[in-house]
Design a protein around this nucleic acid. Sequence first.
DNA 1: CATTTGTTGATAATCAAGAATCATGTATCG
DNA 2: CGATACATGATTCTTGATTATCAACAAATG
Lengths: 130, 130
Amino acid sequence: MTTRLTIQRSAIIDAMRDAPGPLRPQEILGLASRVVPTLGIATVYRQLKHLQEAGEVRAVGLGRNDVRYEPTDRGHHHHFLCRECGEAFDVHGCPGGIAELAPPGFDIEDHELTLFGRCPECATSDKKAT
Amino acid sequence: MTTRLTIQRSAIIDAMRDAPGPLRPQEILGLASRVVPTLGIATVYRQLKHLQEAGEVRAVGLGRNDVRYEPTDRGHHHHFLCRECGEAFDVHGCPGGIAELAPPGFDIEDHELTLFGRCPECATSDKKAT
DNA sequence: CATTTGTTGATAATCAAGAATCATGTATCG
DNA sequence: CGATACATGATTCTTGATTATCAACAAATG
């Protein structure tokens, strides 16, 4: 169970590292396939599991029924989800005073903030103006 | 397709209306079953669909693989999710300046904020102190 | 009361995500 | 080179959530 650094593994890690935000398993497959064309989805899931257990990768859920993965070394940040193309982007910065929102008695450990809208690319190709 | 107000329908609506936060279909079934013991899960899903189409109910996703439903007439608010018991609570109030977090070029339409931690009930019965 | 139309509850069908299986492949080490 | 142990990729299986089906029902209408 020694965890070898195979090309598949590094391709998967690189895909996440180079992405502007968290990726879905299928997206990881697509990106890493450019490096390792024979890559299978099973390996993606397998490596994601290993990487999660190793603490190098974390799952985040934006929207409903949506699980994406991101490297854990990016510090505290939030996300933007484009409603048009579905891509997720990291958003740095965090409004303060969040813990104070909860009524007394609630023990706040953490929080997640997700912005929804249109990414620069989708906003530019304005489909509204049809 | 006239949408009759059956006891099942009103029991389902009442369950959501009386809840402190969004409910999962199974939770709705459990609560509404107190009023209509024969209630089936199929009716819950059916009514949720109708209510969504009627704009009276909205689906929200907290955490991963998690869909809950809430009445739409509660105005802008956020949520708290207890990591121990899994119950969700509405949180009123909203930190300002959220739209400014996004880098230029992003078109922000909306946002969701979820707090994680322990609810008053779970925080009191401190299992940490074992 | 009889008819019509929408509703219910039990259950089967569907679907997708993720896990397990297994033969093949590939480093590593002797 | 040959043996060993882990990794891969194709595929199948499992699981849980949601949907569709359908016979039994109930409200509204004549």
